[in-house]
């Protein structure tokens, strides 16, 4: 995979560009600020080194009552100008960038009816359990008592809605260009769903079901990594994301559906354990 390099990975989702824009803009600003201050700082260090016969010059502090607040503190206030510039930059960044982009990425997950694909991703120590609703479009019942290494989600196969659910471990297949709603859950501890190419990261919290969405824009094979410490096997908790053409995706779904009701085989419940 040539997805990764010394900089940001390739962009493979609709909002990856928006996030990269922010990262690049801020780093440009940071570099500018650092270089300007650095040059000034270096100049001060050389210019004002101790020299015989040159005493330090104090700034004029007008403690007098004449001149008013602004005039008396002009020197001090002038030195706050850089601060004001940084503040204006930050305000612009918040209002024109952070608020709208955050709203679109994190605050407005699509309604399940509007999403092209709905998939449930359940994190556990140390694997990703992925479930598609199957032909009926409904996620069936799952019970914690039924959890077994052959049935990591505890699916109740007697429930007709659950019987056709498609389960895969550590593999997430998505059609390119389609809006996918991912319902993120955790069985045990806090995990984190991170696909670097999607620029998508979200903690999976037990007891909560967190909706998030992605529109993959590039066919390819990506990595789904856990980014939140989840135990001794944290670094081995990874999965693969396959973004396919819609036809390939449907084909794959059909091939998985044909496997049912075979219990999800040995690949499950393990990230190498």
């Amino acid at each position: 995979m040539n997805n990764y390099g010394w900089g940001l990975p390739i962009r493979a989702s609709s909002f990856a560009g928006q996030i990269d824009f922010g990262i690049l803009l801020i780093h440009a600003a940071m570099a500018l600020i650092f270089v300007l201050w650095g040059v000034f700082f270096a100049y001060l260090l050389v210019r004002y080194r101790r020299r015989a016969g040159t005493p330090a010059q104090r700034e004029e502090h007008h403690a007098s009552s004449q001149g008013g607040f602004w005039a008396n503190n002009a020197g001090e206030l002038k030195s706050l100008m850089p601060d004001v510039l940084v503040m204006l930059f930050e305000i612009a960044l918040i209002v024109f960038y952070a608020f709208p982009v955050w709203r679109s990425i994190k605050m407005s997950p699509p309604d399940p009816k509007d999403a092209d694909v709905v998939v449930e991703v359940t994190a556990e120590q140390f694997a990703w359990d992925v479930r598609y609703p199957g032909p009926d479009g409904k996620f069936g019942r799952a019970k914690p008592e039924l959890v077994h290494f052959s049935n990591p989600l505890g699916l109740d196969r007697t429930d007709p809605a659950a019987a056709d659910d498609i389960f895969v471990a550590n593999e997430l297949h998505l059609p390119v260009g389609k809006k996918t709603l991912i319902r993120l859950r955790s069985k045990d501890v806090v995990h984190d769903f991170f696909v670097p190419e999607f620029r998508l990261k979200q903690d999976a919290v037990p007891g909560l079901e967190i909706p998030m969405w992605v529109v993959p824009t590039r066919i390819g094979h990506y990595e789904l990594a856990c980014a939140q410490l989840c135990g001794f096997g944290h670094s081995l908790m990874r999965g693969d994301v396959y973004v396919e053409s819609p036809e390939d995706f449907q084909k794959w779904l059909a091939s998985r559906a044909a496997l049912k009701p075979a219990p999800p085989s040995a690949s499950n419940n393990s990230g190498g354990f």
Binding site: G207, L208, E209, I210, P211
Partner: peptide, 10 residues
């Protein structure tokens, strides 16, 4: 805010 989106309610 969170409770409405949480499925496994207590």
């Amino acid at each position: 805010f969170l409770v409405p989106s949480a499925t496994s309610r207590v």
